[in-house]
Write a protein that binds this DNA or RNA. Structure first.
Lengths: 216, 216
DNA sequence: TTTATATGACTGAGCGCTCGTTCAAGCGCG
DNA sequence: CGCGCTTGAACGAGCGCTCAGTCATATAAA
């Protein structure tokens, strides 16, 4: 089975317009802005965070904020994109160049679940906030989400039929990939219950057994 | 393992205050209001749905609306509660009185997944909207969510160690119950991708294999 | 070096508008 | 009349976003 391409996003955010001429300045300032905005969105949610709060937290005037970003919705998109980039990078780092085996897959899962633990607030934020994106941005964000899931699907399919693993249908591999994605995120969005009963290592152990149990 | 109690909610909504004296009238009118509100929330989301829209859709004046419900947030709570009641009832109906076996569990899962399919919009709404509840209501809603999950956990534990099924740790059963819950909901909140690749029966088949594969 | 001019990042008062909520007045029935 | 219920105009807090203006710095001319 051929690998699904994961479209890599350019580091520059050319898709969101700005009034400022100097591109380096745009990068730097947007960093500041996005960082403060993520914190505020996590703390107060999207709607209760005002553009004035964002400006203040990033040490700008509102006017200045709107030189770097053309609307609150565009800013939301930048936030989502940044979070996805961070998750994707972390998971890709867990992929070794060595052949994929059962143990390597477990490693990737572990790494991903650790990211979900570390970035729990961010994952929750994504779930809460995607709905407010205008359609054009929403499509991009779902594409990014799919890119991450595809990492798992590719990992799975690269060991399907190899060694002593059964050759599995693409549909099944696809769905299992999604399951891995979602079971990681579940640690974030059900933490109100899970954290009372498990620590992250318990969770990883049981879920890895759960996932691998079926297939092998 | 003893069954976890699923606290049954009273049908009357005594927790949300009203100005109207006649309780039957309150029940009837609130039904109307909640029904229209669910539709509007699904269509436009919580914030873009105005109280005026709600009033108009339920054939009330805004003033009247506020006689039956004390705030938009309270109304949101009633909506969430109603949705949970509907899901819970449907799943409980799938529980037969006969002893739980592998096939019975599969039936419960199937029934639940069908509910998730039918109520996809509602499930999505719950995910989008819980965050806007004031703390006191949020706790209640999460409790209701847990009640539904506990149905699965109880079903699982009632066949743990029986017949030729392995005796499993409570922690594992607990987590698998949550997995069933979430994998059902996943059909709703990832439908933007899943519906392109599966129909609900494919989905149920593969996911049931996935879930049962680990345990037995 | 000094002076004039141009550039563009930055400022914040304020505009236009929306929305949740209230309340004084009205209505119909016993 | 009194009571229960209904009405919708009015309120005012709060929001995203704009734009006329300031000021530090770069460049050009004298």
């Amino acid at each position: 089975m051929e690998q699904i391409k994961t479209a890599r996003t350019p580091t520059a955010d050319t898709d969101v317009p700005t009034q400022i001429k100097n591109p380096d300045l745009v990068m730097e300032r947007r960093r500041q802005i996005i960082d403060s905005t993520v914190k505020l969105f996590i703390q107060h949610g999207y709607h209760k965070t005002t553009t004035r709060m964002i400006a203040k937290a990033s040490n700008f005037s509102i006017g200045s904020l709107y030189e770097y970003v053309s609307s609150k919705e565009d800013l939301l998109y930048l936030v989502c994109k940044t979070i996805h980039e961070e998750v994707q990078e972390a998971v890709e780092n867990a992929l070794s160049n060595t052949d994929m085996g059962k143990e390597q897959l477990a490693q990737v899962i572990r790494q991903y679940f650790y990211v979900c633990d570390k970035m729990g607030d961010h994952i929750l934020l994504m779930y809460q906030v995607t709905q407010f994106l205008p359609e054009k941005w929403k499509a991009k964000v779902l594409e990014n989400e799919l890119n991450i899931t595809n990492i798992f699907i590719n990992a799975l399919s690269s060991l399907s039929g190899k060694n002593n693993f059964p050759k599995l249908d693409d549909k099944i591999l696809n769905l299992v990939g999604h399951n891995i994605s979602v079971l990681g995120q579940m640690w974030a969005f059900r933490r109100w219950h899970l954290k009372n009963n498990f620590n992250i290592d318990d969770y990883i152990k049981i879920q890895t057994d759960f996932i691998l149990g079926h297939i092998f």
